[in-house]
Design a binder for these strands. Structure first.
Length: 253
DNA sequence: CGTGTCACTAAGGAAGGATA
DNA sequence: TATCCTTCCTTAGTGACACG
């Protein structure tokens, strides 16, 4: 939706928001506004400023609304449901504690114990959370030993109960996943132009390539971005090597 | 002039603390 | 204790600028 040339009246807005506040709780109204502004194309920082909330909260609102739909606009923290791993009913005979650089799991009165280095994060969590799921260790004790909150400990244990270690305990943060400006078509065009120009001895400067790429596929790819992708695709030395290679192949044929 | 480096912002996503 | 919120990590993209 293109709102660029529409006029918004601050007075009317204030008036209408005040009226809306008689019906909607403030938090809910701000979420609705934040989501609407997001849909209209405003960047998150500007949305956050307008609804007077941290940028991160805007991210959360957008994320949960996109995930759960309309119900996510209201505060759902009071709702019941979702079965959770039950805490231990019988008193735990197995204990866990930190000792220096290790977690020590003590098995009852017998002096057998299991030591896992604290630096072995995944291994330690796998063992301890499995014991939690078997009701052999309490959530609070395990959480304290691992240095995390009981709530999070419960959550990790729940995940481990239904998924393998890789899915439940390994950090899967990956950063931005999409190439927004330079997709497969643009990459192909960069490679094609770079190769053709290198062979024919024409300029392969990032400025020229950016211009050509933008001509062929309408986008706003900057020269700097072209350089960034040339490097990422490992094409940096093509312009010197390729003409030689072509000559060699010509002579052979 | 053209390129690579540095420093930064934007965005997606997960961890973990806070809270209703 | 389920959900929210903040913090942190990662990659994509970019402007400024030093350097060859």
């Amino acid at each position: 939706m293109d709102c660029r040339y529409r006029e918004f009246s601050p007075t009317k807005s204030e008036e209408r928001i005040n009226k809306a506040l008689q019906v909607f709780p403030k938090g809910l109204l701000m979420r609705l506004l934040a989501f609407a502004l997001h849909l209209l194309g405003l960047d998150r920082k500007a949305v956050a400023e307008l609804v007077n909330t941290p940028v991160e909260s805007v991210k959360t609102v957008v994320r949960i609304v996109m995930r759960d739909g309309f119900s996510a606009f209201r505060d759902r923290r009071r709702s019941e449901e979702l079965p959770v791993a039950k805490a231990s009913l019988s008193p735990p005979r197995i204990t866990v504690r930190r000792e220096g650089e290790c977690y020590v799991v003590g098995f009852g009165p017998i002096e057998n114990s299991l030591k896992i280095p604290i630096s072995f994060r995944i291994q330690a969590r796998t063992v301890l959370l499995s014991l939690v799921n078997a009701s052999l260790l309490s959530v609070s004790e395990t959480a304290a030993a691992l240095g995390i909150h009981a709530a999070h400990c419960r959550e990790l244990a729940r995940k481990l109960a239904s998924h393998d270690v890789v899915e439940s305990l390994v950090d899967k943060r990956q950063g931005q996943k999409q190439d927004y400006l330079v997709g497969p078509e643009q990459k192909a065009e960069i490679i094609q132009q770079l190769a053709a120009r290198a062979i024919t001895g024409q300029s392969t400067s990032s400025d020229v390539l950016a211009e050509v790429v933008n001509e062929v596929i309408p986008a706003k790819v900057s020269a700097r971005t072209v350089r960034w992708h040339i490097q990422k695709l490992g094409l940096t030395h093509i312009k010197t090597n390729l003409p030689q290679l072509v000559e060699t192949l010509k002579k052979k044929s």
